[in-house]
Design a protein around this nucleic acid. Structure first.
Length: 320
DNA sequence: AAGATGTGCAACCGCAGAGGT
DNA sequence: AACCTCTGCGGTTGCACATCT
């Protein structure tokens, strides 16, 4: 008996999401929490496949997602991790809690791959670490990925990470030491044009999210945080972050970029931008997943405490 | 100014693993 | 133990926007 399709192909809407659909999805998740995706289309009346809803949420609407403007530091991390882990974007994304695997994957395919190729063509380039590490195995990342795959059962990337942890540490140390502590210039250097593309009319969604994230409960809707399981761990992390509406706006708005609306970026409050920059420098006290500072302290801590010692295997993101 | 080409991003598809019955 | 359903992941595609001629 063949497996039934995840959703009926007939009557299922495809293509870009409209702000209205986003709203419906967000308000549903707000009430019921993320999860049980199967029920989402039925309960919301969305003519979307459950998978599509989940994807939309995890890649886009979920609070705490940073979009565009990859910093140099992030870039290097990605390059190194890709060299180590291959195209295991979800695993890589767990090191960058504010980024989605899709985002990282896209960024790799559109920017980094070319960049590395260029560097290699130029004879190594400044990012020697990545280039050399990637060297043979990189290619399209398949080499690395497959070799790792062969070593361990698929879907058990946490274990593989644990196995690779020493190499990963080394690579991360390289990546971070190559870097200037302040990533912001890279961000600032990015042409405003691209970020403007994220402007949208969906700031109503942003407001919705804002209102949602404010309650002291620490976000995550009803605290269900169903996505906190397994490899979607990044979600759990980001949901704990004190949310800045700007972030929400940025995420919620991208769809709107397709409907060509106005700038939701304006919804960003001054405090929020401060928070955001704090996050960027890893100096954010208290809340916002200072990924890099944590990474750095982890790296600096040579006392033999592995990442996995700190983070329960099932949810590595809690480390951040 | 208009058309052609290139680039980037959001979304879809199919497969595989995990968990439940 | 076997089967079924749901969820997550990675690869790929198509569209919209930007840049160039």
């Amino acid at each position: 008996m063949g497996r039934p399709p995840c959703c009926d192909k007939v009557g299922v809407k495809k293509g870009p999401w409209t702000p209205e659909e986003d709203l419906m999805l967000v308000s549903y998740i707000q009430e019921h929490g993320a999860g049980n995706w199967r029920a989402v289309p039925t309960n919301t009346g969305l003519m979307r496949c459950s998978k599509s809803c989940r994807l939309r949420w995890t890649n886009y609407l979920r609070p705490g997602i940073k979009r565009g403007n990859f910093t140099e530091q992030e870039e290097k991390l990605i390059v190194h991790l890709q060299a180590l882990l291959g195209n295991r974007w979800a695993a890589i994304a767990s090191y960058l809690p504010e980024r989605t695997d899709n985002d990282i994957k896209n960024y790799w395919n559109t920017h980094l791959k070319k960049k590395l190729k260029k560097m290699q063509a130029a004879g190594g380039g400044e990012d020697g670490g990545a280039a050399s590490e990637g060297g043979g195995g990189r290619g399209d990342g398949d080499g690395g990925g497959k070799s790792v795959k062969a070593a361990a059962p698929k879907g058990q990337w946490e274990r593989r990470l644990q196995t690779d942890i020493h190499t990963a540490r080394q690579a991360l140390r390289d990546a971070l030491s190559l870097d200037h502590p302040d990533p912001s210039p890279a961000t600032a250097a990015t042409p405003a044009g691209s970020s403007a593309a994220y402007a949208s009319s969906a700031d109503n969604i942003a407001r919705l999210l804002q209102g949602w994230m404010r309650p002291g409960g620490g976000g995550g809707g009803n605290g269900k945080g169903p996505e906190a399981s397994g490899s979607t761990s990044t979600t759990a992390t980001t949901q704990q972050q004190p949310q800045c509406s700007g972030e929400g706006a940025a995420s919620a708005s991208a769809s709107a970029s397709q409907s060509g609306a106005a700038a939701a970026a304006t919804a960003q409050t001054p405090e929020c931008s401060t928070e955001t920059s704090k996050m960027a420098t890893g100096g954010g006290a208290g809340g916002p997943a200072p990924a890099f500072s944590m990474l750095e302290s982890w790296l600096l801590d040579d006392g033999g405490m592995g990442l996995m010692d700190v983070v329960p295997l099932g949810d590595p993101s809690e480390f951040f």
